[in-house]
Amino acid sequence: MIKYILRRILMMIPVMLGVTIIVFTMMYITPGDPAEIILEDGATPEAVAELREEMGLDDPYLVRYFRFVSDLLHGDLGTCYAIGQPVFDRLVQTFPNTMKLAALAVLVSTTLGLLMGIISAAKQYSVFDNVAMALAMMGNAMPNFWQGLLLMLLFSLWLGWLPASGFSSFKHMILPAVTMGTSSAAIIARMTRSSMLEVIRADYISTARAKGQVEYRVILRHALKNALIPVVTIIGIQFGRQLGGAVLTESIFAIPGVGKMMVDAIKARNFPVVQGGVLMIALSLSIVNLLVDILYAYIDPRIKSQYK
C-alpha cells in the first residue's frame, strides 16, 4: 500500500511538470509586455527596455521556461506585478480561504447528495424519489453564479439574515458554500441513486434479505458500501469543480481567495499571480485524486489487493 502511494506520488511529478509547461506557454503567448505593465503608463522606452533586460524577457522561450521551473523548485513563484509581493506569500494568504470554502461546500454537497440518493434508491418511484430527482435535475442545471446572486438577493438584501460579501466569520461562509455545493449535491444524489439501484438488484442483497436482515441494515451495511465506489469518484471530481468554481463564487461574494485573486490578476495582466494560482489548484487536485484512490482501497478489498 505504501509502495503504491509512493509510486502514485512519483507519477504526479510528470503531470505537474506538464501543467507548468501549459501554464507557462499560455502566459508566454498572452499579449502584453510585463515590463510595460509593471512600469505603468508614461514610462520611457529606455526604462522599459532596461526592465525587460533585467527580467530576462528577451531570452528565448526555453531559457525562460527553465528559469521558471528552476525558480519554482526553489519555492519562488515570481513576484506580483501589482504590489511587488512574492506570489508565494499571496497564495499563503488566499489559498486557505479557498480550501475552507471548498471543503465546506464538499461537506454540504456530500451530506445532502448521499442522503437524497440513498433514500431515493430505497424508495424508488416514491413521491420523495420523484421530487428529489426533479430537484437534482434543476440543481444540476442551475448556473452557480446566478444561484449565488439569487441567494444573496434573498438572504442578504431582502431578509438581511446573512452578510452579502466578505470573509470574516463563519456566517460569511454559508452562502458561498451553499452556492458552490448545490450543483455538486445534485450530481452526487443522482450518482448515488443509480449506483444504489444497480447494487440493490445484486444477488448478495437478496441473500442478505434471505438471511432475515432488517431492511435498513441491508441498505446501509450491504448496499451502500458497494455503491460507494463510483460515488467517491464523483465526490473527488466535485472537489476539483469546487476549486474551479471558486473563481466565480469568490468574485460574487468578494472572498479573498485564490479564485478572486486570479480573476483580478488576469484583468490586470498580472501573469505570475495567474500562473501561481493555476499551479496551486492543479496540485491540490492531484492530491485529492490520490486521496480518492487510497479511499477506494478502504472501501473495496478487491481494489486493495490490486494496490501492490
Partner: peptide
C-alpha cells in the same frame, strides 16, 4: 493520455480562463 491527464488536472473553468487570456 498523459497530455489528457494534464489537461484534466486543471479545472475546466481555469483552463478556459487561461486560454481566453492568451
Amino acid at each position: 493520455m498523459r497530455f489528457v491527464d494534464i489537461l484534466m488536472s486543471i479545472p475546466a473553468i481555469l483552463l478556459n480562463i487561461s486560454i481566453v487570456a492568451a
